[in-house]
Structure formats: structure tokens, C-alpha cells
Design a binder for these strands. Structure first.
Lengths: 104, 104
DNA sequence: AGCATGCATTCCTTGACAGGCATATGACCA
DNA sequence: TGGTCATATGCCTGTCAAGGAATGCATGCT
């Protein structure tokens, strides 16, 4: 329960693929993800566990299936770290816009 | 030269600390970073190499010093991946705003 | 009860770093 | 030229995570 680092979780390309797949579909079962991604079932389950423990996905049980869906909160944390860097180029773009506005 | 994954680079907490330090100072030498971060010089140099090869920082030579500064382009790539997820909550916020507007 | 389905977990092996330490490189100076 | 400063690199070791194969564990069905 050691609160895994969100960036470390996203460092795995396979996990980002899982998230990208989930993003396009509201929610999906493990089997659907296995089919869509072409990965082994244990591989998908293990990545889903990492994502779940980091809060990126939530899970509900439907009969023998586990249905996963995205939770945005960890993404907000990542976005929070990224925000000051984003300002480094949006500020420049804003300045450029103001400059172009003055040109007219 | 194997085009390292930007997320994998950011997965290291120490590297994020280096970036956060650089962000507050335009540019800094390796020695300054060593002092500010309290890390060994080889450790800092090795992380800077990773950051440099991934494009997160650029480097200029000033006498015996190497002066590092941030380059925003890899951050833009990361932000690009994050953008659709960000819409998942900004859309909700926008909808909430519209709702509150109608309340008035 | 017995069996199949859907998923999670374990064990094992392998590969990728991270940090410490020592050393190399390159620029400056006397 | 010899020495020093600033930084980069190499080697070594420990740690940790990923994937494959096999197995465990529920739930549902007949």
C-alpha cells in the first residue's frame, strides 16, 4: 500500500496502452483488454493491478468478470506537476498572440 | 541513441527534482545543481545525460563549466499524451460551470 | 457435486537501471 | 609543462520490475 509514484506507473508503455484503450470505451473487462491489446491475460492483470493500486483505474465485479474504468484523479496529480512547465510555452504563445494582435 | 521514452525519463524522482530546480533558475551549472540537491556529482551528471539525450535539457559550455537549461519540447510531448485525459475532467468542470450559470 | 469460465497470483528468470567509487577528459592557470 | 578545477565516464553491485508458465480462486452452469 506504499503509494506508488504515478510517473513510475506511466513509465510502462504497456500500461499507457491499457489506459488509452480504456479511455475510448468508458469501461472494459479484462478479457476485452486482452483481446484488444494482444497481450497475455496474466500480463494484463498484473498491469491492471499496478494501475489500480496507483488509482488510475477502478474496478467493479460483474459475475466472473472484472470491469475496469479510468479514474482521473492521478492524472490530475501528474498534470499538476506538469503545469508550471506548460506555462513555459503557453506564456510564450500568449506573448506571440499579443504581438500578432498589435501587428493588425 | 535509442530515443528514450520521455515517461521513463520522468519516472526517476531525482530527475524530476533536477528539472524542478532548473525551472526556477533559467540555467544552472552542474556544480550548482550538486549543491542545491545534495547529491554526488557523478549522480547528477549521469541524470543530466539522460535528460539531455531525451531532450529535456540543453547544455552549453562556459570554460570548464557546463550550463544546463530546460527545453520544453519533450514536455509538450508528455502534455500531448495527457491532454485527452485532462479533457475528461475539464469537460466536467465546463459542464458544471454551464449548470451553475443556468442557476443564476 | 462437478466442471468450465474469467481473472488473480505465484515462481522463476532475465534485463534494466541507480548509486558509490575510482578514474578519465578537458579547460584554465602559474 | 605541471597542476587544479569542473565535469563526464567506467566498473561494480544491489535492487527491482517485466514477462512466461503454471496454478489458485471465485463465480456460474448443468
Amino acid at each position: 500500500m506504499v503509494s506508488v509514484d504515478a510517473f513510475a506507473v506511466l513509465a510502462e508503455p504497456t500500461r499507457r496502452r491499457i489506459l488509452d484503450t480504456l479511455r475510448g470505451a468508458e469501461e472494459q473487462s479484462v478479457g476485452e483488454l486482452v483481446d484488444l491489446l494482444g497481450l497475455s491475460q496474466p500480463t494484463v492483470s498484473k498491469h491492471l493491478r499496478v494501475l489500480r493500486e496507483a488509482g488510475f483505474v477502478t474496478c467493479r465485479t460483474a459475475a466472473q468478470q472484472r470491469i475496469y474504468r479510468i479514474d482521473v484523479r492521478p492524472f490530475q496529480a501528474v498534470d499538476g506537476w506538469l503545469a508550471p512547465y506548460r506555462r513555459m510555452w503557453t506564456d510564450h504563445l500568449d506573448a506571440l498572440e499579443r504581438h500578432l494582435d498589435r501587428q493588425e
